[in-house]
């Protein structure tokens, strides 16, 4: 088991002692959900990491997950495209549905699921290949482009929408790992949108970036939200306030409060949310 996973498990506090009401405060349901989670429980071995979370993710909207370290927001995010499948001891109960179909149903293939629900990770992780190949990888393995010209188009439009085209158009064949951190993260976003997903999951996409690169990514998220449903995990409450329309506050594996970002940050209904956003803990 790699250390990253160990950390997730380590950070996941033991829920036995959690003194949080079972009911989530706020509007967990929306009118036009893209994905729906119902009574989701996640276990790492014996440890419960997510406790009975019910949440709708609205279409073409940005929802941010906030909460202290180890609260399960990343774990929940990784459930949405079944990235937790790679962790042997991880077990999931409940239902997460997309278009009315449970993505954990036995007949669901994760490959098309992950093509529809793309993911951008905390640390920029371009493949050690050329910029072009990085973006073209997804379309290639899924057979999305039928010919070379189409693939070129996909690469160009993906890089354009990720705001990277002008910076890299003259060096598409150079390694993606040679870019700066912010550029690498935008390359990863380009790689994700190249397969035309419907939902993009972002796991603290700016935590390894400087403020200027962060600002670029945030702008980008705003632009992309017209086309994609975006779920972003962030430690920065300012970021959540800037980029998202809805905010979900997690604490010790439970979804404490969810609602319009403005509401959550100005008039939190739950005391714990209030404590967290006012910086009393976390």
């Amino acid at each position: 088991m790699d250390t990253q996973v160990m950390n997730i498990i380590e950070q996941t506090a033991n829920l036995e002692h959690a003194n949080i009401p079972d009911e989530t405060v706020g509007d967990v349901y929306v009118d036009r959900p893209r994905m729906t989670a119902r009574n989701v429980n996640v276990f790492y071995g014996d440890k419960k990491a997510i406790d009975n979370v019910t949440l709708d993710i609205a279409e073409k909207q940005v929802i941010s997950f906030i909460g202290p370290s180890g609260c399960g927001k990343s774990t929940f995010l990784r459930c949405l495209n079944r990235m937790n499948d790679t962790i042997d001891i991880c077990r999931i109960e409940g239902e997460i549905a997309m278009d009315g179909k449970n993505i954990y149903a036995p007949d669901v293939d994760v490959v098309p699921l992950r093509a529809r629900v793309g993911m951008v990770f905390q640390k920029p992780n371009p493949f050690p290949k050329s910029i072009y190949d990085n973006v073209a990888y997804g379309p290639r393995i899924h057979g999305i482009a039928t010919n070379r010209a189409e693939l070129d188009d996909i690469v160009e439009s993906s890089l354009e929408r990720a705001g990277l085209w002008n910076e890299v158009k003259d060096r598409l064949l150079q390694p993606g790992t040679g870019l700066s951190g912010g550029q690498q993260q935008r390359l990863c976003i380009a790689r994700t949108i190249a397969v035309s997903p419907e939902v993009i999951l972002m796991d603290e996409p700016c935590s390894a970036l400087d403020p200027i690169a962060t600002a670029r990514i945030e702008e980008l998220i705003a632009e992309l939200s017209s086309e994609f449903t975006i779920v972003i995990v962030t430690h920065s409450m300012q970021q959540a306030a800037r980029v998202s329309q809805r905010t979900a506050y997690f604490h010790l594996g439970k979804l404490v409060e969810v609602g319009d970002t403005e509401m959550v940050f100005t008039k939190p209904q739950h005391e714990m949310t209030n404590n967290y956003i006012t910086g009393r803990f976390g």
Partner: peptide, 20 residues
Amino acid sequence: PSIRDAALGVGASRVQTMLH
């Protein structure tokens, strides 16, 4: 592991992640 995540994240199968 980040390379594995990256490949799985764009929908590569486990075999593709391995071989590519």
